[in-house]
Design a protein around this nucleic acid. Structure first.
Lengths: 190, 190
DNA sequence: AACTCCATGTAACATGTTACATGATTCG
DNA sequence: CGAATCATGTAACATGTTACATGGAGTT
């Protein structure tokens, strides 16, 4: 039932077709909820069946027509109810950490490479979030935005994503340092 | 195929029964891979069928007998191969962030409470990791341990968990601050 | 001519969650 | 005396992943 609420929350940013929604999930929602296009199409059908969203058909000339989804009143209520419930802790599942756990019985060089990949991936994500942030703030200072903006949800989740990636960067560096230190543990104090 | 490798990696810490393994997942593995007992029992069957682990039956007097699992040579190879593969980025799915995204259309007070719960949960986890860390280091300094310990994998993943929770704490505080600031945006400069 | 984007899906499969069942034992 | 722990499972269900299909439009 949780993807449903992520979809409803994503549609607060404005109506979207399934395809557009999947793009939106790629850029902004992905930082707190991941979903493939197939999951979204399936979920949109379900939400419509339950009356939580509704479609408006947009006729297009040189493109197939699309169904553009928006949240119904029932959907708004459902989302409101959802926010009153306690949030379950996220289920962590990170392959990189499994590899790291197994590094002593595995290929250390390969794990290092995987760490560096994660590091550069995190840097790219952080840069993306910074661009989105600049666009959101639009020249204003953060506290101005927090005080004045109509919605703060998107800004707060963006900050969540930003801090998560910053953390990733720190952590990868630390792990790489530790591995380097172990590879050459000779006389750090000359 | 990924739970399988998490199980193999967890068994590097020593042989365990299904029940013991699920305890191990609760305390130390949970910080990078979550699994319910049911998943573990199912996965252990599968791993045995594939010859990657094997059981030793331990007869017990006042308890039902247990099957204690250890990694076979084929399992070691499988795990080694796994470490050479690139790690896929983790799939983020955090209900709390969904609630936060929807906060402007939801119950702000309830979302704050959920944030505070996450905060105290993160603090408890951090304290737990610190205890585990102290036990692991056993009086030595970190760089000593890194240079001398037989295995560094467990220490590195523990550090991952620690930093993750520290990050959680920072982030919850930041979000709560932002919400408080918005609730009372009056004259911060007197 | 080949590739990517728009736009939507079906089907099969893999994985994860929840509820329930059993039965002895030790702890408060 | 009731609850939690040890120890293992079955079954049903919900969710997530992967492969494939379609077909026109624009881009290199």
């Amino acid at each position: 039932m949780a993807l449903a609420h992520a979809v409803l929350a994503a549609l607060l940013e404005g109506e979207a077709s399934g395809y557009e929604l999947s793009k939106r999930f790629d850029v902004s929602v992905a930082n707190f909820w991941t979903a493939t296009p197939q999951q979204l199409y399936r979920e949109l059908e379900r939400l419509e069946k339950d009356g939580l969203i509704e479609a408006r058909v947009v006729e297009q000339e040189r493109r197939p027509n699309k169904r553009v989804w928006s949240v119904t009143e029932a959907g708004d209520e459902e989302l409101y109810e959802f926010t009153t419930l306690p949030a379950r802790p996220p289920a962590l599942r990170d392959e990189l950490l499994v590899k790291l756990q197994a590094i002593d019985a595995g290929d250390e060089g390969a794990v290092r490479v995987a760490l560096e990949e994660r590091l550069s991936h995190a840097r790219a994500k952080l840069a993306l979030y910074d661009r989105i942030r600049a666009r959101l703030l639009d020249g204003r200072a953060e506290d101005e935005h927090l005080a004045e903006a109509e919605r703060i949800g998107p800004y707060l989740t963006l900050m969540g994503g930003r801090m998560y990636e910053q953390q990733n960067i720190r952590w990868c560096r630390r792990a790489l340092d530790a591995l380097a230190q172990r590879a050459a543990p000779i006389s750090r104090t000359p």
